Simulated scan of single mutants.
Amino acid sequence: MFKHSSAIINKLPSHRLMALDVMRGLTITAMILVNNPGSWGAMYWPLKHADWHGWTPTDLIFPFFIFIVGMSITLSVNSLRAKRISDQEILKAGVIRTIKLIALGWFLALFYYNFRDPSFSWVDDKLLQLRVLGVLQRIGLVYLVALCCYLYLSPKKIAITCITLLLFYGAAMLYIPYTLPNGEVVSGLWLHGNNLSAFIDNTVLGSHHLYYANAKPLPFDPEGLFSTLPAIASALSGILAAVYLTKQPDLKKQARTLILLGTLAVIAGYAIALITPINKALWTPSYVLLSSGLAAIFYALCSAILDIYKLRSWGAPFIVFGANAILFFMFAGVFARLLIMIPLGDSSLKGSIYGLIQLVISNDHLASFSFSLLFLMVSYGVMYGCYRKGIFWKV
């Protein structure tokens, strides 16, 4: 195992810092882990989302990834500018990347066929009810807006934009009235299926194209249109963190400052939670402050462990996963769907594999978690094969 890890780490450029690479890998690994249990009904609480308000470790995964997107924008644009690539060319490439991410999100939404149900209609059940938004679609939209901000705004104006987005979103959710299907006009609600963001999703996209299509009184999407605004703020916070890192070469000062600022952001998040509750599905301002603050602290800890104290071997698998984050996400999505789609006897291939695990492990939660680990092991084999052959899918 040590030789395996050393071989991965030794391939990295000697001057390259590992913290961001490992954090990206850890985040995408956690995302795949929680998305692929043996049974959704048997999951340990840290691997589940909060029922509504509040948060669990799982609720930090997506905003951490968005924060990393922001940091990566700063570093990649700086690198491209150093190569004398124009901002116009960078923006053009960013638009293309966004289109690709949205298309990949739609591909995953459509990649399913129920072979065991003779009445299943792919056109009626999938194509005509395509979920318009989703994880990759949000990443694409957030990336493009954040990229434009970094290309054309100063760090000070980016900070102002970040704060403005949170203030506008919070004020709109609190004070803009909307009409329920029964004709009642309400405002200021943060309820499941009853809030301004849900009203906008349902009005613009229609209930059949939303994740919670049956939510009452208003269907909505956790990666909805209006809630994408504060998600942009999450990316801008990552941009600002990376701007600071590029201006402060002392790694220990970097870590101390990020921990301090991150702690203040977490405190601020809890302070305003009385006004705007911490909620991932609505991506509330308090949730942005909490998650961005914890992301900054987590990056600082990774930097201290990996780049200051040079304890690096443990991070090797996450380098592999992080180097091909989008390919890993796509592979996991397709692989998971294939396991469900392929019939095997009276069950699916996934059901049969999980059934075998349950014969060995009687505890349902442990069996479900073991399936997740097995899924990750198979995925790692594929991603490591790509890593060894130099196959890196840059969307």
Rank of each mutant, 00 (worst) to 15 (best):
Asp346Met: 11
Leu20Cys: 01
Leu153Tyr: 11
Ser197Leu: 07
Ala231Phe: 05
Gly224Ser: 08
Val145Asn: 08
Ala300Trp: 08
Gly322Met: 05
Gly206Phe: 00
Gly333Lys: 00
Ala241Tyr: 00
Tyr112Trp: 15
Val22Cys: 08
Ile319Asp: 03
Asn202Met: 05
Met31Cys: 00
Phe111Ala: 07
Ala7Cys: 07
Cys162Ala: 15
Ser39Cys: 00
Leu26Gln: 03
Glu184Lys: 14
Ile85Phe: 03
Lys100His: 07
Ile99Gly: 13
Ala231Val: 02
Asp307Thr: 00
Ser207Glu: 13
Thr276Pro: 06
Leu174Cys: 05
Leu251Gly: 09
Leu33Thr: 12
Asn202Pro: 09
Pro222His: 02
Leu349Lys: 08
Ile102Val: 15
Ile340Leu: 15
Ala19Glu: 11
Ala42His: 13
Leu301Val: 14
Gly94Pro: 12
Tyr113Leu: 04
Val204Phe: 13
His192Gly: 05
Ser197Asp: 13
Lys216Tyr: 10
His365Asn: 15
His53Ser: 09
Gly293Met: 03
Arg81Leu: 15
Val69Leu: 05
Gly322His: 09
Thr263Arg: 06
Ser372Phe: 10
Pro63Gly: 07
Lys83Trp: 07
Ser79Met: 11
Pro13Asn: 01
Ser303Glu: 12
Ile319Asn: 09
Ile28Tyr: 05
Pro219Thr: 03
Leu210Trp: 04
Ala82Glu: 15
Tyr211Glu: 10
